[in-house]
Measured scan of single mutants.
Amino acid sequence: MIINNLKLIREKKKISQSELAALLEVSRQTINGIEKNKYNPSLQLALKIAYYLNTPLEDIFQWQ
């Protein structure tokens, strides 16, 4: 199972779901689904999230 800290990191950086979704060219619902662990992002999307949040990938997504 993958645990993610996306919501915590996104809120710490004061970025809304809508703003992050626009940067990543995905829907706000996609961001919401990832934050709620409804599904895991593709590797490409995970890397883009880490890039736009300027945060190491392993700080956002962790195996458990």
Rank of each mutant, 00 (worst) to 15 (best):
Lys14Leu: 13
Glu35Arg: 01
Glu19Arg: 13
Asn37Ser: 11
Leu24Cys: 09
Tyr51Ser: 10
Gln44His: 14
Glu19His: 13
Glu25Leu: 10
Glu35Lys: 01
Leu8Phe: 14
Asn37Glu: 07
Tyr39Lys: 11
Trp63Lys: 05
Pro56Cys: 05
Asp59Ser: 10
Lys7Cys: 06
Leu6Arg: 00
Leu45Ser: 03
Lys13Ser: 10
Leu23Val: 12
Thr55Ser: 09
Lys48Arg: 14
Asn32Leu: 13
Asn54Ala: 14
Ile49Asp: 00
Phe61Ser: 00
Ala21Val: 03
Lys48Ile: 05
Gln64Tyr: 08
Lys12Arg: 13
Ser27Met: 04
Ser27His: 11
Glu58Asn: 14
Lys38Thr: 14
Gln64Met: 10
Lys13Tyr: 08
Leu8Gly: 11
Leu43Val: 10
Leu53Met: 07
Ala22Arg: 13
Lys38Cys: 10
Ser16Leu: 07
Arg10Trp: 02
Lys38Asp: 12
Arg10Thr: 02
Ile3Cys: 06
Arg28Asp: 12
Ile49Ser: 01
Tyr39Asn: 08
Val26Ile: 13
Ser42Asn: 11
Ala22Asp: 12
Tyr52Asp: 02
Gly33Met: 15
Leu57Met: 11
Met1Phe: 08
Ile15Arg: 04
Gln17Thr: 09
Met1Tyr: 07
Ser27Ala: 07
Lys12Glu: 13
Ser16Tyr: 04
Ile31Pro: 01
Ser16Lys: 10
Lys48Cys: 07
Asn5Tyr: 06
Pro56Gln: 06
Ile34Glu: 00
Ile15Ser: 03
Pro56Ser: 08
Val26Cys: 07
Leu43Gln: 09
Leu57Cys: 05
Lys48Gln: 11
Glu35Ser: 01
Ile60Ser: 01
Tyr39Ser: 09
Thr30Asp: 07
Glu11Ser: 10
Ser18Ile: 14
Ser27Ile: 03
Lys12Ser: 14
Leu20Phe: 07
Gln44Asn: 12
Leu8Thr: 15
Ser42Thr: 13
Glu35His: 01
Pro41Met: 05
Ala21Arg: 03
Gly33Phe: 13
Asn32Gly: 09
Leu43Arg: 10
Asn40Ser: 14
Lys7Leu: 08
Gln64Ala: 14
Lys48Asn: 07
Gln17Arg: 09
Glu35Gly: 01
Glu35Tyr: 01
Ser18Cys: 08
Ala50His: 03
Tyr52Glu: 10
Leu47His: 11
Ala50Tyr: 02
Lys13Ile: 09
Thr55Ile: 08
Leu23Asn: 11
Lys48Tyr: 05
Asn40Thr: 14
Asn4Tyr: 01
Ala21Asp: 02
Gln62Asn: 06
Asn5Val: 03
Leu24His: 01
Ala50Glu: 04
Ile15Tyr: 08
Ser42His: 08
Leu8Ala: 15
Ser27Cys: 05
Leu45Thr: 05
Met1Trp: 06
Gln64Cys: 08
Met1Ser: 07
Thr55Gly: 02
Tyr51Gln: 12
Glu11Asn: 10
Lys14His: 15
Ala22Ile: 11
Lys7Arg: 15
Arg28Trp: 15
Gln62Pro: 07
Glu25Ile: 06
Lys14Tyr: 08
Glu58Ile: 06
